[in-house]
Nucleic acid binder design. Structure first.
Ligand code: MN
Ligand code: MN
Ligand code: MN
Ligand code: MN
Lengths: 218, 218
DNA sequence: TTTTTATATTTGTATTGTCTAATTTTAAAT
DNA sequence: ATTTAAAATTAGACAATACAAATATAAAAA
């Protein structure tokens, strides 16, 4: 059974590859807030255990085994977040830190029960897909709000960053997943967008925010 | 913040003192399935941290600080067990192992939410009292079923051992907390008791079982 | 009181996961 | 083509947690 430490490395490798293609030891050390030698020696250990393909000075790659292990941890993380929000009444901004710990619980029965109580959800409270029990994940095809044009009718389906500060900012603006909206205007100068929500509300968001919101055309 | 390892030692010291008065290093090493030198060095570390009063070759004692820390871990354990049974549909025999891991989650908000959802329970699914948020615990005054006499009217209020095997045994006999019963007979020879339940059912239980059941006179 | 046994402790070693400092390799800039 | 900078690796150390073997102490038995 992998230690919590090893599990966190696997998850980090998976996420970094997902976000930015090639992953190097520095990325990993930055993401996990450990020194480069620490990340380096862990990578060698993971390679020895068949989790990572590793050649000195080359980008890191998870093996299929490593990917599956990582996906199963992410499954536990996201099921937990969904449970905390849907069944325990937490806000979407409060659940990440708790899930960060719960994802290491060793009990298939516990997570299966969560899954069942939640009626087998496909996404977590931030719109990220939940891998299935085999570690397979369906990557949804969403658009970045910042790439959308004036007059497009959209639905907010995911946020790509789930920091406390960002989610609290969205809370103050009453912006939630599932909301329908239309792009009213887009500033050429700074990329900021004014959105018209279904309930008539209008909000102007900076490009920095729009780049973190994923939408679907409706 | 105490490590999971340290938390397990504190909890073990608390439980052993509760069950058997004086605790020595061997008891601790047996209970936690570690060698005596390992237990010995941990005890010295706990003494240095003000959790344990320790003098070479003397019985071990938790300080008030150590007792409080232990009680707060036990609080998390028992709240979790209650949540798993009451809100997630687990059987009382399934929850101990999961709670053993969940008790180490660092998130007051998480356990406060559980407490609230459960409407501030006083006992866990096995009838053990749940310490309050300050680590104070009310020790209930129950009787051992094995000490009761013929014809006494009783209510089952707690089990003193929660092993999977014992709880599964009780399940097969459909014996649950809260059930009312009367002692129909008691064998002088082997101490076994025949109980008459409120629903008319009769069960004969060995003294070994009766010594693990706590009752209240009604 | 001496001997035996059980318990406890010390000593020395291993593993995991971390660090800093020094060195090496690769990539980028001149 | 050299030089410089960034990235990666190696070397050496340390804290936490564990063990086995050797030794010491206390308690029980003779
Ligand atoms: Mn998360
Ligand atoms: Mn984690
Ligand atoms: Mn328990
Ligand atoms: Mn535990």
């Amino acid at each position: 059974m992998a230690s919590q430490t090893v599990e966190n490395y696997l998850k980090a490798l998976y996420k970094l590859a997902d976000e930015s293609g090639d992953v190097n030891v520095s990325d990993l050390s930055t993401h996990l807030k450990v020194s480069k030698p620490t990340a380096n020696s862990m990578v060698k250990k993971l390679a020895k255990d068949g989790m990572v393909v590793y050649e000195k000075y080359k980008p890191l790659q998870l093996t299929d085994k490593g990917k599956k292990a990582a996906a199963l941890i992410i499954r536990k993380h996201r099921l937990t977040e969904m449970f905390l929000v849907q069944k325990m009444g937490f806000g979407w901004e409060e659940v990440h830190e708790i899930a960060e710990q719960m994802e290491h619980i060793k009990s298939p029965a516990f997570f299966n029960k969560m899954d069942e109580i939640l009626e087998f959800p496909n996404i977590d409270p931030h719109g990220s897909p939940i891998p299935d029990a085999d570690g397979n994940i369906v990557l949804p095809e969403y658009d970045l709000l910042s790439d959308c044009e004036v007059n497009e009718a959209l639905k907010l389906v995911a946020v790509t960053h789930s920091s406390l500060e960002f989610l609290q900012f969205l809370n103050t603006k009453e912006i939630k997943l599932g909301q329908k909206m239309k792009v009213k205007s887009k500033e050429a100068f700074d990329g900021s967008m004014t959105l018209l929500f279904a309930d008539g509300r209008e909000e102007t968001l900076s490009v920095i925010v729009c780049q973190k919101l994923m939408v679907e055309k409706v």
